[in-house]
Design a protein around this nucleic acid. Structure first.
Lengths: 234, 234
DNA sequence: GATCTTCTTTGCGCTGAGGCAAAGTCTGTT
DNA sequence: AACAGACTTTGCCTCAGCGCAAAGAAGATC
């Protein structure tokens, strides 16, 4: 596996406040893996043997319902942990994690977690801080689903993706990995048809430009107005 | 405040696996408080000065949207922690916690959290385990909101309340604290009108009995069928 | 026991958004 | 360059569930 060194992880928020020697000790126990687009990082119900850090690429976390519908729980960007089931007292993964683009991850055996927790208090604290943020996000999601119309939810979802993985282009801000209408529908609790209609309408108004598995937000400010429901239908 | 002793908390799952002496040390630093029905335990945005353990009663955790709608995040039963913002890296409470019935809580200053985390590893692990369960619940909630009809969601909500706070009576299982149609609506992302209509229909079919701020589930099994969408409308 | 307040029920009309169906478009492959 | 497969667009119809409105209980208060 060759030379993993701390430069891979130094500077990431989960490792904030840690000594270089500790980073070395942590990286030293990791295994680096490449995961091709559309391949799983881990799967729902599977024994949670490892936890991961995404170094490059994008991962989609999806839960499948008994009757076969998929709901996207979150998208993961480089620098974030995933699969930390053991840190939350679970022994299996609660969802499927699928590479939304080619990825590079670091993997640690889950049994290292207790040791890490005991020896690297700021790593632990940072990790739980990010768990707190996820819980927060999940609640925000519930609130959006409870109180907003589909149009607002889709707008919010795009803005979140843009913030998290936006890349500036001359046309606007591009969501920097392939994402289909269906994917957006699974994030917002609607159908690909409705998402398609919304994107078409927004394109007519000059808010976004979109194509096959590709969305560019042209006017984030106006899209935010839509997200906040402060725009009447035209 | 008098004599708090470990018998108050021994046996609760968050304190599982802890020595009696440690329980004493923990309880010794707590303050016990009574909170009357409809009074706040803590409020959204407020500085998270303390974290709490509910000893008796029921607490409703509610988030308010900017435009004044309320969404209930969860109901808390005796034995559960609440307000552990600091353990998740936050300095303010993320929501309002309101006594749904008269309550007794223990309170610890938040600044004790790091000490507890360092000195009582199994308490810490148990706490994060319960956070994991909450995250799980929140995701389940998102999935329900995404894939189920209102009828199923309300049925699921009632079953969850029954499981969590049900008391057997001769008529069925009573949800053991006052809960209005509005409260149920805020848990399920619908309106009190729709909840009222559903309860009326279910009452006609003999699934539940309900009254002012009171719901009794008469036939949990049949209600579960409704929750799972395996029943056609009659 | 009369009044007030809060909670609940129910009727009616409307509409946002889903289901179905079919056609269009893009990409990679042979 | 034609084909296959995957993704997207759009039209039309339908209906679950919301908004509005008004009336009906059940407690609470004095």
């Amino acid at each position: 596996m060759g030379s993993l060194d701390r430069s891979l992880i130094a500077g990431l928020s989960v490792f904030e406040g840690m000594a270089a020697a500790d980073l070395d000790r942590i990286v030293g126990q990791a295994r680096s893996m490449r995961i091709a687009k559309d391949q799983p990082v881990f799967e729902q119900e599977q024994d949670a043997h490892s936890f991961f850090l995404l170094l490059d690429g994008h991962v989609r976390v999806v839960k499948s319902t008994p009757d076969g519908q998929d709901v996207t729980v979150r998208y993961i960007s480089p620098g974030e942990l995933l699969g930390i089931a053991h840190a939350l007292g679970r022994t299996t993964y609660p969802a499927n994690a699928i590479a939304a683009a080619d990825c590079v991850v670091l993997a640690w055996p889950s049994q290292l977690w207790p040791t890490f927790a005991a020896n690297f208090p700021s790593f632990t604290a940072n990790t739980y801080k990010s768990v707190g943020a996820r819980l927060q996000d999940a609640h925000t999601r519930v609130i959006e689903m409870s109180t907003e119309q589909v149009e607002q939810r889709v707008a919010h979802a795009l803005l979140k993706l843009v913030k998290q993985s936006g890349r500036k282009t001359e046309e606007g801000i591009l969501i920097d990995f392939p994402i289909s209408r269906q994917d957006i529908a699974e994030m917002t609790g609607t159908t690909l048809h409705t998402v398609s209609r919304l994107l078409s309408a927004w394109e007519d108004q000059g808010l976004v430009k979109s194509g096959r598995q590709k969305v560019t937000v042209v006017e984030p400010h106006r899209l935010l107005l839509v997200a906040e429901g402060r725009v009447e239908k035209g």
